[in-house]
Amino acid sequence: MKATLVLMACLLSLIGCSKKTTSTHYICNNKKAVLSTLKNQEAELTFNNKTYNLSHEESASGNKYINKEVLFWGKGAEAMLIILGKKYHCTLK
């Protein structure tokens, strides 16, 4: 019983460690943007002194993250950012 509890505790701690965040820096129309992704399912975009929480959405190619106000679609060294209808062209910094 104790061995099972110890094993479960170890496995739970490993699951917690696997949530690695990756940050990618862009320049979008001469403004800095940082996209921080967590296992490609959720993202946090910081742009123009605001932070937006985004969800991953299926895309034919590249990575696409959205919420009600924001669409961020990146492929390779370029990305497109649309915030409340305003479109920005982004490149890796």
Rank of each mutant, 00 (worst) to 15 (best):
L5G: 13
V70R: 00
T51D: 02
S13E: 07
I66S: 06
C10Y: 14
G16V: 08
T37I: 06
K19M: 12
F47G: 02
K20T: 14
A33N: 02
N49H: 08
E58I: 14
N30Y: 10
K68N: 14
T24V: 08
L71A: 08
E44T: 08
N53C: 08
Y52H: 06
W73M: 04
F47L: 02
L54A: 01
K50T: 02
T46Q: 03
K20V: 13
N63W: 07
L54M: 01
E44Y: 05
Y52F: 15
K32T: 14
T22I: 10
L45G: 00
L45E: 00
G76N: 04
E69D: 09
C10I: 15
G74N: 15
K75Q: 12
T24L: 12
I15D: 14
L7Y: 06
H25N: 09
S55W: 08
T24M: 06
A33T: 02
L45M: 04
T22L: 07
S13K: 07
L71E: 13
K31L: 11
L54D: 04
F47P: 01
N29F: 02
M8T: 09
V70D: 00
K39G: 10
L45D: 00
G74M: 15
N53R: 12
K64M: 05
Y52M: 02
F72T: 01
E57M: 09
T51A: 03
H56E: 10
N67K: 04
I27F: 08
E69V: 00
K19Q: 12
C28G: 04
L7E: 05
S61Y: 13
F72E: 00
N63C: 09
K39E: 09
A9F: 10
L11Q: 07
L35F: 06
N40D: 15
G62Q: 02
G16F: 05
T51I: 07
L14F: 12
E57K: 13
E69G: 01
Q41E: 12
N29V: 04
W73Y: 05
L38P: 02
V34P: 01
K75L: 14
N48R: 10
H25W: 08
S23Q: 12
H56S: 15
L54E: 03
K50E: 05
G74S: 15
F72H: 00
K64N: 03
T21G: 06
L71T: 11
K20W: 07
I27G: 06
K31F: 09
F72L: 04
C17W: 10
T51M: 03
F47T: 02
E58Q: 12
N63V: 10
S55H: 15
K19D: 15
C10P: 09
N63R: 13
G16Q: 09
H25Q: 10
V6Y: 05
I15L: 10
A60H: 09
S23R: 07
C28F: 04
L45Y: 00
E69F: 00
L5N: 13
V70M: 00
L71S: 09
E58F: 15
L14H: 06
G76Y: 03
N53P: 03
S61L: 10
K50S: 05
L5A: 11
F47C: 01
S59L: 02
